[in-house]
Amino acid sequence: MTLTTLRLSSSTQTVGYCDHGQGEPLVLIHGVGMQSAAWGPQIAALEGAYRIIALDMPGHGASDPLPKGSELPEFVTWCHDVVQTLELGPVNIAGHSMGALIALGFSVGFPELTRRVALLNGVYRRDDVSARAVQARAVEIGAGKIDLETPLARWFGNTPEEITARAQVAAWLSEIDPSGYATAYSAFAHGDATYADQLPQITCPFLALTGDGDPNSTPAMSAAMAALAQQGQAITVKGHRHMVNLTAASEVNAHLLTWLKQQTSQEALL
């Protein structure tokens, strides 16, 4: 995949992104520690019918970091800046993990720019135990203590597909900028309820998808979010964990294609 860099019109920051295909725009935002290349299976499957714009999150890949201490709304503002600078107009937007939080924030903050929204392995209102654990990890990462093996063990099993995906993810994690990683992880750790109360405002087609083996982005979280959105649907991919877009790519791609074909309220008026 060819990576392009873009100077944003509002913040003047540089963003790295991949731009493939033609048609309705689909913006993809990866999770903490990843990069735009993590969407490779989705780009390959969907670029024949859609224009796919896969972004490097701030502080990841070729994208400049946001200032230290930036919270989830600053990442959402960054995403809006990208959409406006590229003059994409209303977009389909899908995010994974931290990217799902950004996609959710974008959809409630800029409904006029959102055709459809999909959250892959998204988090929603963690319980107290989970919240304390992820916030403690954020403090450790901020102090420079970065443990990459623990998340890899949590995200992957031992099937051939998972072993291959684990090697890819390990390579991306090894390339992270510690400061950008710390800022994004802190926003992720504290952002699970930032836009939770606004889910009922989402009127566009809404998909929440996760793996049944993901202990932190659980099927119950996906079901709760989908129940609140006006056109919400929750899907659980059986036998998979946190990196479903890589380990269950064909199944995920099929669900994304179905979501992309759902009629929007604007289309219903035509």
Rank of each mutant, 00 (worst) to 15 (best):
residue 19 D to C: 06
residue 206 F to A: 02
residue 132 R to E: 14
residue 17 Y to D: 04
residue 53 I to H: 09
residue 173 L to A: 11
residue 3 L to E: 09
residue 118 A to V: 00
residue 175 E to A: 14
residue 22 Q to P: 05
residue 68 K to A: 14
residue 103 A to D: 01
residue 55 L to H: 05
residue 114 T to M: 00
residue 26 L to Q: 01
residue 224 A to E: 08
residue 187 A to L: 12
residue 84 Q to M: 13
residue 206 F to E: 00
residue 118 A to M: 14
residue 253 N to C: 09
residue 16 G to D: 12
residue 41 P to C: 12
residue 242 H to F: 08
residue 269 L to Q: 11
residue 30 H to L: 11
residue 175 E to I: 00
residue 84 Q to N: 11
residue 132 R to Q: 15
residue 155 W to Y: 14
residue 22 Q to I: 09
residue 89 G to T: 08
residue 96 H to K: 03
residue 168 Q to C: 06
residue 241 R to P: 09
residue 57 M to W: 03
residue 66 L to P: 09
residue 219 P to K: 08
residue 105 G to V: 06
residue 42 Q to T: 15
residue 56 D to I: 12
residue 227 A to Q: 13
residue 85 T to F: 02
residue 268 A to R: 13
residue 83 V to G: 07
residue 145 K to Y: 10
residue 108 V to E: 02
residue 207 L to K: 06
residue 173 L to C: 05
residue 208 A to W: 03
residue 25 P to Q: 00
residue 198 Q to S: 07
residue 251 E to W: 03
residue 68 K to C: 09
residue 22 Q to H: 15
residue 249 A to N: 03
residue 265 S to H: 10
residue 144 G to Y: 04
residue 244 V to A: 12
residue 188 F to I: 04
residue 94 A to F: 09
residue 43 I to T: 06
residue 207 L to V: 02
residue 268 A to T: 09
residue 65 P to C: 02
residue 113 L to G: 02
residue 13 Q to H: 13
residue 15 V to L: 14
residue 86 L to R: 09
residue 203 T to P: 00
residue 163 I to S: 12
residue 240 H to I: 00
residue 226 A to S: 08
residue 73 P to R: 12
residue 237 V to N: 09
residue 143 A to W: 02
residue 116 R to D: 04
residue 111 P to T: 03
residue 73 P to S: 10
residue 266 Q to D: 10
residue 31 G to Y: 01
residue 170 A to N: 12
residue 152 L to S: 05
residue 240 H to G: 07
residue 97 S to K: 02
residue 91 V to M: 08
residue 172 W to Q: 09
residue 195 Y to H: 05
residue 233 Q to D: 01
residue 87 E to S: 13
residue 110 F to D: 01
residue 258 T to N: 11
residue 90 P to R: 07
residue 145 K to H: 15
residue 135 Q to M: 08
residue 106 F to W: 04
residue 260 L to A: 03
residue 247 T to M: 01
residue 6 L to V: 07
residue 43 I to W: 00
residue 127 D to C: 11
residue 52 I to V: 12
residue 149 E to Q: 13
residue 124 Y to V: 04
residue 9 S to Q: 11
residue 269 L to E: 08
residue 6 L to S: 08
